[in-house]
């Protein structure tokens, strides 16, 4: 089972991986955005990590405070988007001191649906949704089937990678980069790329933990 301590470790891993990719993400964003996407993600996840898991047993309460920390650290649209995901997961987990992998699949799906609702993006708009939604739906659909959990998350991660790669050929339809229209084609969306880093960090941690 997963408690606040395990979620904190997950956030630390995400934060570490995002930090490593920070400059790469900024470069991707520099083309159509203002070039600070890597910094925003770095600051946001570091802020989520600053919340002490030992202060909370209720996962809902813990995630709500993480959402607040993330949003207060990052303005722009990344703050409310990841903040919403954390908040929707918090709502699901309210009152629980531990969650199962099934719960996690549900929390991720609710979180991503929340981001979609907040940002009004759909698949194909060249946003982080192109990475996150395939992961969330693939994982949620597979979670109650038989088979090892590792396989399920790796399959979901493949779907996320395909989704991220698909943004390369898209024209931005939403957000600041949409101003560039056709010129946005040919490059990965920075939000889709950073979302993949987030998922990859989580998956590699889970696979490592289960194997060891």
């Amino acid at each position: 089972m997963i408690g606040t301590q395990q979620l904190h470790e997950l956030f630390l891993e995400i934060s570490k991986c995002i930090h490593e990719k920070r400059d790469e993400l900024c470069d991707l964003d520099g083309f159509a955005g203002d070039g600070d996407h890597g910094i925003s993600m770095d600051i946001g996840w570091a802020a989520a990590c600053s919340v002490s898991p030992t202060d909370y047993t209720d996962i809902g309460e813990y995630l709500k405070v993480c959402a607040k920390a993330f949003i207060q650290a990052v303005g722009a649209s990344i703050g409310p988007l990841y903040g919403t995901a954390l908040l929707r997961a918090a709502k699901y987990a309210a009152g629980k001191s531990a969650v199962s992998p099934e719960d996690c699949a549900q929390m991720i799906l609710l979180g991503v649906e929340g981001m979609q609702e907040r940002g009004k993006a759909k698949i194909g708009d060249k946003t982080l949704i192109d990475t996150l939604l395939p992961f969330a739906t693939t994982f949620a659909e597979s979670i109650n089937r038989s088979g090892p959990l590792e396989q399920k998350v790796l399959t979901a991660l493949d779907a996320a990678r395909d989704g991220m790669e698909s943004t390369r050929d898209m024209v931005a339809n939403i957000g600041r980069s949409s101003r560039h229209g056709e010129k946005s084609r040919g490059r990965l969306d920075p939000g889709a790329a950073s979302a993949f880093v987030v998922l990859q960090a989580g998956v590699s941690m889970l696979v490592k933990t289960r194997v060891s």
Binding site: S77, P80, G83, R118, G119
Partner: peptide
Amino acid sequence: YSGDNMNFSMAAELAEM
């Protein structure tokens, strides 16, 4: 505006919670 939409709707959700 997209920024205001996101931040105000998020505030509405937090207030409802």
